[in-house]
Amino acid sequence: MSDKSSKQEKRGGKAARAEDAEQADAVVETPVAAAPTRLSVFKTYKLYVGGKFPRSESGRVYEVTDSTDKWLANAPQASRKDARDAVVAARKAVPGWSGATAYNRGQVLYRVAEMLEGRREQFAREVADAEGLTPDEAAAVVDAAVDRWVWYAGWTDKIAQVVGGANPVAGPFFNLSTPEPTGVVAVLAPQESSLLGLVSVVAPVIATGNTAVVVASQRAPLPALSLSEVLATSDVPAGVVNVLSGFTAELGAPLAAHLDVNGLDLTGADAELARELEISAAENLKRVRRPSAAGPEDWQADPGVERLTAWLETKTVWHPIGV
């Protein structure tokens, strides 16, 4: 363990040197006499598993750069064991979260919106860096992400009424169909839309009472990792959302094959990976949501309910009617 953490430190050290070099360049241009620029405090980005923020058990990190290839941070490069741990945490959270009232889940999701609203500047900066947007564009994306949480917060206690209902069977029976969560859903978040896309795929999973293991955008994982901090402070119970950063293909494989995962959202997989993972997911007949065949989705569009119903099972209960 100590060995691993020391490796971690070394890698951190290397990254820090890159930063130092940049600072050194700056120093050249700065008059020697001026007060030294305040050295900013970097954030150590971590995974989010079971309500905690661990480093990858593998001790690996990878460099995350902005749209111009400038170094932003090191993100944990989660391993298959991290994926396994995340599934365990997600499974453990299922009874509590799926058993919570829909009203309660709605309030929790709304609380996420509130928390995100309060950190709009931070996320605008991160999204701008990640996606190469102008500050205004990035702010609009963050606003849309906040509003998406609000949209799904409102759905928690309505979707059952929209997709469920009584069935008029030809006999003396009360017959009611209601939607229930599928269980643990593994989500490969969209690669291109690091926050709005992420929120758009995660919120419907948990709005319906499922728990999620999310693989963040491989290239731009930082908004996802920061969102974890929002979730952790928003009354979302531990394990309901678990966020992994790393290589989509490396993490997708164990998640797709995992027999305790019930659903697989392949939004962030390319066609070849998606096919591979769908084949693997067939082993326990996971519900698979394929990536859009028409290229990246328009995350600003009205999401409809399709991403809610994708992770719902219809349960139909019969009971005789007699005195």
């Binding site: 069935n167 008029p168 069977v169 030809a170 006999g171 029976f173 017959n175 169909s177 349960k315 139909t316 209960v317 019969w318 009971h319 005789p320």
Partner: peptide, 13 residues
């Protein structure tokens, strides 16, 4: 789920 009955089927269900 069939409660107090079993193997009932209906086109609407």
């Amino acid at each position: 789920v069939w409660a107090n009955t079993f193997n009932q089927f209906d086109p609407t269900s």
